[in-house]
Design a protein around this nucleic acid. Structure first.
Lengths: 445, 445
DNA sequence: TTCGCAACCGGTTGTTAC
DNA sequence: GTAACAACCGGTTGCGAA
């Protein structure tokens, strides 16, 4: 790891002074309050790596104290999650921390800069803590999962991520905002350790109706922004991979792994192929710093339908107020993601027209979960518009729309047919590209 | 078991002559073709019991051959299910047979009367084989379960119970009717053993979204009616309790039970509390005769909405025809359960409204794809309006509308014909221009 | 490639100790 | 009662044999 000057923080060790690599691109001193200009695009990837443990290496050649922040501020923050981490770790996967659904876990946030002792003059930052899926899941997949999960909750108000209102926590943070169902933002002072208590309200197995299968891994991601930053880009981003279990499932999982490890050992077969056993028991997990600060995390705000519309409105209103007080126009944009950044709301307006609208569910043949098509009018045109909007097929390029009845009869779709569909009728959708036009097939199921 | 004269049929043993207890209520000879009068209510419970094994005891004191049928005919039929039965059996539960979803199992039906050798002059009976829930589930619960299950099937056509079209089977049965999604009826001759092959398409775990829980036990029930019986009441009713598993789950379940039984035994603890171990391995299960012939089994026909309306209609029509030939008015009622006996439609009003509308599919001779004609009323006028709207033919210019039946018979279309069309009936449409008017031809296909 | 089968997976349930 | 924990449950997956 050439030239990397990274800080290692052992357990119980006081964070002291940290030295960062000098950026090859900009070698000037930047204070914590000097941020990236907006037009500064495509920063280089962080040139150093971290080990799979998520901790930082301590190179033998520590640079002197008077080195400065990395331009991006990457690496200057360190977060921990107070939960037992899995001892074993599959090859090709990062470490995994086990949580129980509905249980509170402490998350601590520290800023480890060399200037720590000097105290930053403007020392407030805003962090957003989120529950997201692994990066191999794209935006649509993530939203599909969240929608699926949300549709099966007892109450539509059920959030993915909650924060505890412990006094212990409120001494260190403020301006808490539930900016999405899976994201909470708050501000804290880099001169003091911040501590929050979070709980995750979904199970890793909640994203599929299949029984007896592994749950999906999730990530707790923390993005930290300059308080007055004009940029959409966080100063720092880190994550911790988690699995969420029922009841005391996290503890059982650890127990079972220990048992299995013991059985393996007693068999003498040191077949640790593909499994790395983390040596010592870890009561806390360090977040792993990410180098990609550009990717937009997927925020989930449920589809606001009738009664729920109002609630989402509240969130936005609240955010807007907050942000107005802060005076940052661009920050406002960030904290109020556009419809496209969120779960796209098909029913943006209107109340008197609602009775004419039809909500159809369609899914691909190969998929399990449906997409919702809200037809602004129960007509062929309305259907084509909805498909166009949802799947990016230009309306004018849709050559034919067929429907196939349950008996397999192929019919030209028309207004009349659509008018007689009921809300929540279900179809298999097939979009066939044919020359430079598309043929749409809705199969009734 | 005092005074019980029951027949025991061992494996491989030919059913020969059976002796039944003389009814204390009626000691007259009744032939198989003499049935209960309709006004004869509340028959006494069958005065004999069966052991939990579901087989019949063979009392040492067998009565002579010339004893006669029990008034109800109960006990004169014996059915077997060729599937391995669970070795263990929980206290308070009957025996349980394990099946795999989608796998075919043989069911044999025998009539064991003393007159067997004499051959019945009128020897046809109708049996209905059903998959139902245990008796502790009332009608509403059962329908709720079926609806839940049906709503999660890949195709709405998915039936609960299917019968194989093996030649081996068709030699012994006829007039097969799928009278409900969970019930199939057929006729057979009591002088010959009937053999059918059935498969169950639901899992015992399919009735709940909960993960990791026991599946619901089901019953295969067989009701046997006199072929010309005017009564709703079957001659005989028997059931076998089953659990349906995925893949080869039935075999695994048996294996696991054997393993556990072995472990218990090796521990020396003869703690058979609450568990009866069936001594020998049973490759087939005997159905257990039920004494309650009054209870109406719960038949499941899915909510008929638009497209599916017609399918249910077909079933009914078919049944009605069948029954008319048999001439039994009351049987007809039985095979055509009222809406209340079936899955009650939640959209009853909607159905009432849409009841009058008919959706027909028509295509040109040369085309492949159909157009939909929504008739606002099921009349000739409604048809002409729909054609006019769809193809721009002025209604007043339509001179004649013919229909051509499948046999090629040409008929003037009238209100009556149209009223009897079902949703999604299909036609070839031909519009012939003749002077300044048009002739329409609908050919049934 | 399929089949038989044991192991995996994790929600759920029952049992035992405090 | 409640907390800890092992066993149950059955769909699913992976592995070795035919």
């Amino acid at each position: 790891m050439p030239g990397a000057g990274l800080h290692y923080r052992g357990e119980g060790e006081e964070p002291t002074r940290v030295v960062y690599e000098q950026s090859p691109y900009e070698a000037t001193t930047v204070s914590h309050t000097t941020y990236l200009k907006e037009d500064q695009k495509s920063p280089p990837d962080s040139p150093y790596e971290e080990d799979t443990d998520g901790k930082y290496h301590s190179p033998s050649s520590l640079a002197p104290d008077d080195f400065l922040f990395h331009e991006e501020g990457v690496g200057s923050f360190q977060y921990t999650l107070d939960a037992t981490r899995s001892l074993r770790q599959k090859q090709g996967e990062g470490p995994m921390t086990y949580l129980n659904k509905g249980q509170f876990y402490a998350v601590t946030l520290n800023e480890l800069s060399a200037n720590k002792r000097l105290r930053h003059p403007i020392s407030k930052v805003r962090s957003v803590i989120m529950v997201v899926f692994s990066q191999d899941k794209n935006r649509d997949e993530q939203l599909k999962y969240w929608k699926y999960w949300h549709s099966r909750q007892h109450t539509a108000k059920q959030r993915v991520l909650d924060i505890a209102d412990y006094k212990e926590s409120f001494n260190t943070i403020s301006n808490i905002e539930e900016i999405a169902y899976n994201a909470i933002s708050f501000t804290w002072d880099v001169n003091e350790e911040a501590k929050i208590f979070i709980t995750v309200n979904c199970l890793s197995t909640d994203f599929s109706s299949q029984k007896g299968v592994k749950g999906l891994p999730l990530m707790i991601q923390i993005d930290t922004y300059s308080y007055n930053n004009r940029s959409n880009k966080p100063l720092h981003r880190a994550y911790s991979q988690i699995k969420v279990f029922c009841d005391k499932g996290a503890e059982r999982k650890i127990r079972d792994e220990e048992r299995k490890s013991f059985r393996k050992k007693s068999k003498g077969k040191d077949s640790n192929v593909g499994v790395i056993t983390v040596p010592k028991k870890t009561d806390a997990t360090f977040f792993k710093t990410m180098t990609d600060l550009e990717a937009q995390p997927v925020l989930f705000i449920p589809d606001v339908h009738f009664g729920t519309l109002q609630r989402a409105g509240q969130v936005f209103t609240f955010n807007t107020e907050e942000i107005d007080r802060e005076g940052g126009v661009l920050v406002k944009r960030m904290f109020r993601p556009s419809d496209e950044d969120l779960c796209p709301s098909p029913h943006k307006q209107i109340k008197e027209e609602t009775h004419k609208r039809v909500l159809l569910y369609v899914r691909k043949e190969t998929e399990e979960v449906f997409d919702a098509l809200m037809l602004k009018s129960p007509t062929l045109r309305g259907l084509m518009d909805a498909i166009s909007e949802k799947y990016g097929v230009p309306t004018e390029r849709i050559a034919k729309v067929y429907k196939k009845s349950k008996k397999g009869i192929l019919v030209n779709m028309d207004d009349n047919i659509i008018e007689h569909y009921s809300n929540e009728d279900t179809f298999i959708l097939n979009i066939e590209s044919c020359a430079d036009s598309f043929k749409i097939m809705l199969t009734e199921i």
